[in-house]
């Protein structure tokens, strides 16, 4: 159980997050929706411990996360960024093995190697394991990065727009990968994402962020016409297809 109580953060006195509170349970996927500059990435970095919030607390099982050491944090939380700058001359196995960094003291143990090969198999990347990263497509590379975040064996995964720069098929592939991992491994996922419909398809929970303020948080019921228009500043229509809500942008409000 990961909970955030009244986080406030500012860059050089310019407030970016104002009193944000929510929580995520195990096996739950939550999407953060909001425009550019709404504070999505900042929120993720506060949870990651890279940025320290001015007020409020992040709690993991009721324990103050800011008290954790760097390595303890890294054993609980993993991070997937949108555009990965990766070492081109690393092979897939080694790139995923890097996720074991917080668990390794001097050398990778046999257990570390087994975790890596297990995760690679689970995400059907086993046949790529000896390829160099500069020989992969964008979609494959993003899956490798997600595999690494899973090899870290975290309690919660934070993802910052994992599907931007990917084509439609790879967007679905990557989201399904995250979805399967979350359900099967019982970890939580918190994801900043621009594509509302992709979020609607895979998430259990939605958090609406506008100018650093949380407008609403909850299940698919919070995806309403008025909420969407408020968050994105765009007129929308909401339809239901195959029991799923679909948000259709109409024109700028």
């Amino acid at each position: 159980m990961f909970s955030v109580n009244g986080i406030t953060f500012s860059y050089n006195c310019k407030p970016v997050l104002k009193d944000v509170s929510f929580s995520i349970g195990e096996g739950e996927m939550c999407s953060i929706l909001g425009n550019n500059g709404a504070g999505k990435s900042t929120l993720l970095k506060c949870l990651l411990g890279i940025l320290a919030p001015r007020e409020g607390a992040v709690l993991l099982d009721e324990k103050d996360f800011s008290r954790f050491s760097r390595m303890e944090k890294a054993c609980c939380v993993s991070y997937v960024a949108q555009r990965e700058k990766e070492n081109p001359r690393l092979n897939v196995f080694d790139a995923v093995l890097m996720g074991r960094r917080p668990h390794i003291n001097w050398a990778a143990s046999e257990k570390d190697l087994e975790v890596v090969s297990e995760v690679l198999e689970a995400l059907s990347l086993g046949n790529l394991s000896m390829r160099y990263l500069d020989e992969l497509s964008g979609g494959e590379l993003q899956k490798v990065v997600i595999t690494r975040a899973l090899a870290q064996e975290p309690r919660i995964m934070l993802l910052d727009e994992p599907t931007s720069n990917l084509d439609l098929k790879n967007q679905m592939d990557v989201m399904r990968t995250v979805d399967t991992a979350v359900r099967e491994r019982g970890i939580s996922a918190l994801m900043a994402i621009h594509d509302v419909n992709l979020a609607l398809r895979f998430s259990d929970k939605f958090m609406l962020l506008k100018d650093g303020v949380m407008l609403d948080c909850g299940g698919p019921e919070v995806i309403t016409k008025s909420n969407m228009e408020e968050v994105y500043g765009v007129r929308v229509a909401i339809e239901v297809r195959e029991n799923r809500k679909i948000v259709i942008p109409l024109e700028a409000a």
């Binding site: 390595m71 993993s78 991070y79 960024a81 990766e86 070492n87 890097m98 960094r101 917080p102």
Partner: peptide, 23 residues
């Protein structure tokens, strides 16, 4: 050599390195 894992993580960008527990 003691820091070899850390240098590996730096290549993936500062945020990823930080998320892997590296100062």
């Amino acid at each position: 050599m003691f820091n070899r894992w850390n240098y590996n993580t730096l290549e993936s960008g500062d945020d990823i390195a930080g998320s892997l527990g590296v100062n």
